[in-house]
Lab assay of single mutants.
Amino acid sequence: DVEEQIRRLEEVLKKNQPVTWNGTTYTDPNEIKKVIEELRKSM
């Protein structure tokens, strides 16, 4: 579920933690925001 994935990513973003997405680890909050944007567009 895309909305659930977005929620999880936003939680990680709030905690300022790195997130691994599709085999890539993002540590930059701006990169994580881009991933969230892409997910929103795909909905």
Rank of each mutant, 00 (worst) to 15 (best):
D1S: 13
D1M: 10
D1L: 12
D1C: 13
D1E: 13
D1F: 12
D1N: 14
V2W: 11
V2G: 05
V2Q: 06
V2A: 08
V2H: 07
V2T: 11
V2E: 04
V2C: 10
E3M: 14
E3H: 10
E3C: 14
E3K: 12
E3P: 09
E4S: 09
E4I: 08
E4M: 10
E4Y: 08
E4R: 09
E4D: 12
E4N: 09
Q5I: 15
Q5V: 14
Q5N: 08
I6S: 01
I6H: 01
I6M: 03
I6T: 02
I6R: 01
I6Y: 02
I6G: 00
I6C: 03
I6L: 06
I6E: 01
I6D: 01
R7M: 10
R7N: 08
R7D: 03
R7V: 05
R7T: 05
R7Y: 04
R7A: 11
R8I: 14
R8H: 14
R8F: 15
R8M: 15
R8N: 09
R8T: 13
R8C: 14
R8L: 15
L9T: 01
L9G: 00
L9E: 00
L9P: 00
L9R: 00
L9K: 00
L9D: 00
E10V: 06
E10A: 03
E10R: 04
E10F: 04
E11L: 05
E11A: 07
E11Q: 06
E11N: 07
E11H: 08
E11M: 05
V12A: 15
V12G: 15
V12T: 12
V12E: 14
V12H: 15
V12C: 15
L13R: 03
L13V: 11
L13F: 07
L13M: 11
L13C: 06
K14M: 11
K14S: 14
K14F: 09
K14W: 10
K14C: 12
K14H: 13
K15P: 01
K15F: 11
K15A: 12
K15L: 15
K15W: 09
K15M: 13
K15G: 07
N16V: 04
N16K: 13
N16M: 08
N16I: 02
N16R: 10
N16A: 09
N16T: 04
Q17S: 08
Q17G: 10
Q17C: 11
Q17R: 05
Q17E: 14
Q17Y: 15
Q17M: 15
P18D: 14
V19D: 08
V19A: 07
V19G: 09
V19F: 09
V19H: 05
V19T: 03
T20M: 14
T20P: 02
T20Q: 15
T20K: 13
T20W: 15
T20C: 15
T20Y: 15
T20L: 14
W21G: 08
W21Y: 12
W21S: 10
W21M: 15
W21A: 13
N22A: 05
N22Q: 12
N22R: 03
N22Y: 12
N22I: 02
N22H: 07
G23C: 08
G23E: 09
G23R: 00
G23Y: 01
G23L: 01
G23A: 01
G23T: 01
T24M: 13
T24W: 04
T24P: 00
T24H: 13
T24Q: 13
T24V: 15
T24Y: 06
T24S: 06
T25V: 13
T25I: 12
T25F: 10
T25K: 03
Y26H: 03
Y26N: 01
Y26K: 01
Y26A: 01
Y26V: 04
Y26T: 02
T27G: 04
T27V: 07
T27K: 04
T27H: 08
T27I: 06
T27L: 07
T27Y: 12
T27P: 02
D28C: 03
D28L: 03
D28E: 08
D28Q: 04
D28H: 04
D28T: 05
P29Q: 06
P29F: 05
P29H: 06
P29M: 13
P29R: 04
P29W: 05
N30Q: 12
N30F: 11
N30Y: 12
N30V: 14
N30M: 14
N30E: 15
E31W: 02
E31Q: 07
E31D: 12
E31H: 03
E31R: 01
E31T: 04
E31P: 02
I32L: 09
I32E: 00
I32F: 06
I32K: 00
I32A: 03
I32T: 02
K33G: 07
K33P: 01
K33M: 11
K33I: 13
K33N: 06
K33F: 07
K33W: 09
K34Y: 06
K34A: 13
K34C: 07
K34Q: 10
K34R: 13
K34L: 10
K34I: 08
K34T: 08
K34D: 05
V35G: 01
V35I: 15
V35A: 03
V35Y: 03
V35L: 15
V35N: 01
V35K: 03
I36Q: 01
I36P: 00
I36W: 02
I36R: 00
E37R: 05
E37F: 05
E37K: 05
E37W: 03
E37P: 00
E37I: 08
E37N: 08
E38D: 12
E38Y: 12
E38V: 08
E38A: 09
E38S: 12
E38L: 13
E38P: 00
L39E: 01
L39D: 00
L39V: 03
L39Q: 01
R40A: 04
R40L: 07
R40S: 04
R40K: 12
R40T: 05
K41N: 12
K41M: 13
K41I: 09
K41A: 12
K41Y: 08
K41S: 10
K41G: 08
K41T: 10
S42L: 13
S42H: 09
S42W: 09
S42K: 12
S42Y: 09
M43H: 08
M43R: 10
M43I: 13
M43Q: 12
M43D: 03
M43Y: 05
M43G: 08
